[in-house]
Amino acid sequence: MPIVLKGRPITGGRTRGKALVSKNPLSFLGGVDPETGVIIEKNHDLNGEKIGGAVLCFPHGHGSTVGSYVLYSLVRRGVGPKAIVNEKADPVVVVGAVIAEVPMVDEIDVSQIRTGDLVEVNGDEGTVVILERDGSCT
């Protein structure tokens, strides 16, 4: 049986992708290179990772309020996340997800998800389903 995590729907839409999971809060402004989608925040556990096409899982956003536009910009350039999973949504990330039209769910314990897991995010129902781990079905 796949592992189903139940959270809160934030922005609608349903998508599948590989999870990229962080223990650290993330600032889109200054923390993510807007050209390449690479995380550049100092001392971040995903430093150097590309967020393009990933289901990006992190506790919550922090830092400057321009972050919403950066998220929109990343998605428009095709280097943004496919979906966002947070423990606690903050307004900067939520508004970014609304205008970029990225499915988003919060109130998920992101430590349940591992980088590389194939997950399905359902932003209408607020669920995250872990479909595959280490190449095998869960």
């Binding site: 400057s64 309020t65 321009v66 536009y69 950066v70 929109y72 910009s73 990343l74 428009r76 350039r77």
Partner: peptide, 16 residues
Amino acid sequence: ISGVSYKTIGDASIDF
């Protein structure tokens, strides 16, 4: 309103 510098908001945001 923040998000005025072209450096911080980038091209895609101008479209928006």
